[in-house]
Amino acid sequence: MELLKKYSEEELILSLQQRDQQAFSYLYDNYAPALNGVIYRMVEEKELAEDILQEAFIKIWDNFTHYDSSKGRLFTWMINLTRNLTIDTLRSKNYKKQQKISADENSVSNLSNNYSGAERFDTIGLRKNLENLKPEQKTIIDLAYFSGYTQEEIAKEIGIPLGTVKTRMRTAIIELRKML
């Protein structure tokens, strides 16, 4: 069994630009669970989520030349691509966006987490840290990040003016960053 090579973000991007499949395999191992978590929270169906995840990674491979590192981190590009793909799939399947995210019982942190295997991220440690995030701060991040809501939809869901979404999101992410 070959040793797993570790890549920095820059190395990973360079290798992927050169169509290095080993780098792609590494990319999958490190990011598929996080992307799957996002898709699953949007579709709430394991098989459909995995179908979309598969399609998303094919798209990431096929469209990698479109990724521009000056515009943001690799993961941001991947999650945007994945979220858009999921929204398109839900629309084409005539799914209704489920208005399920709320501050309490449906909060994403209460969904079971079965992340396992070789991991680069200290998931459990991260989750512990995030427990200190206020529910309203979690909710606003979740609605944007895990539900693909627009600013208007978020304002409506939480019941705040549209202009407040920006400041509320900033505060939430500042708090989030303090906990990492």
């Binding site: 598929a32 669970p33 996080a34 992307l35 799957n36 978590g37 996002v38 699953y40 929270r41 394991k46 989520a49 995995e50 995840l53 943001g72 981190r73 993961f75 941001t76 999650i79 994403v108 942190s109 969904l111 987490n113 079965n114 992340y115 396992s116 295997g117 991220f121 998931t123 991260l126 989750r127 995030l130 991040i141 990040y145 895990f146 992410i173 989030l176 960053r177 990492l180």
Partner: peptide
Amino acid sequence: IEKGLESYAQAHAIQPA
């Protein structure tokens, strides 16, 4: 900011089949 959100997503990861 992106790193923060990335960690947030990693904390909510679900291992696919």
